[in-house]
Computed example of a mutant assay.
Amino acid sequence: MIEKSLHSSETKEQHLIKIAEQTDEPACMLVLTDFYLTEQPQPQQLWYWLNKLLARDYLPAYLVQAQLYLSGNTVEQDLNKAATIFEQLVERYSQSENIETNLHQLAFCHLSLARISHSRRHTAPMLMHYFYALQFDSVEAAEDLADMFSPDRAKNSQQTEYLAILQCVFLTLSAVFLQQQSDDSNDEPQQQTLLQHYAERKNQIQENIHRYQLTASQRDDIRQRVRLWNEGEHQYLMEEVVSYINN
């Protein structure tokens, strides 16, 4: 079984190398770097192909490079380098003529910058990048914020009630984004996974409502905040979060 698996892996590696060399297409080389990163870890080969892509100024390659510096995978972890690359990518993806095709990349860059800022306890840039990611329908950003504003962090009963509402808002946004992703996906297994996560978020919202005994009026407040966000009125939720943190 092991020999068969190894043979299969070697065959795939040879096949990917052949395609990358014959086509000279960056997308094919990127698949090969992913192979050396996730399926058959070989740092030297990974960086050989990644450097080829970086020499061509291929933007998706910078995403891989930034993630490697962020995680410390195959290189010494360097948050400054990772942040610099992510910031440059945000600028370049934002200036692209086909920005609509880069929304996922922009969301990921902002999410990564938010997490870097969070690790450094830099609140203002953290929130800025989280809300940018949220505007690009980032499930991860919504869930990070839901965790950040957990009622368990409250210092008194008034805060508990307020945070329960705020957490439900972010959990609802996460559920909305998950449903959108499921609707947009043509991959049935992926759809099922997304819908499962969607159901989990909805259950968590209901648990919050019952646990913290949120009133009908408070549930209306949650729906109102979500509605405003979905209609593009982002400043209300942003100002509310900033006001809470500042107080």
Score class of each variant (00 low, 15 high):
K4G: 00
K4F: 03
L6P: 02
H7W: 04
E13T: 04
L16E: 04
V31W: 03
L37F: 09
Q42R: 03
P43S: 09
L53F: 06
A55L: 10
A55C: 06
R56Y: 05
Y58K: 01
L59H: 03
P60M: 09
L63I: 02
L68S: 03
Y69G: 02
Y69H: 08
L70A: 05
N73I: 10
A83H: 05
E87P: 02
Q88L: 09
L103F: 05
L103A: 05
L103K: 14
L103V: 05
H104Y: 05
L106W: 00
L106H: 00
C109G: 06
S117E: 08
M128A: 09
H129F: 00
F131Q: 00
D137W: 00
M148D: 04
M148C: 03
P151F: 06
K155S: 14
Q158I: 07
T160Q: 13
E161H: 07
L163F: 08
L163T: 15
V169Q: 15
T172P: 01
N186P: 01
L195I: 12
L195G: 01
H197Y: 10
Q204M: 10
Y212H: 06
Q218H: 12
D221C: 10
I222F: 07
Q224D: 12
N230H: 10
L237D: 06
E240A: 07
N247E: 08
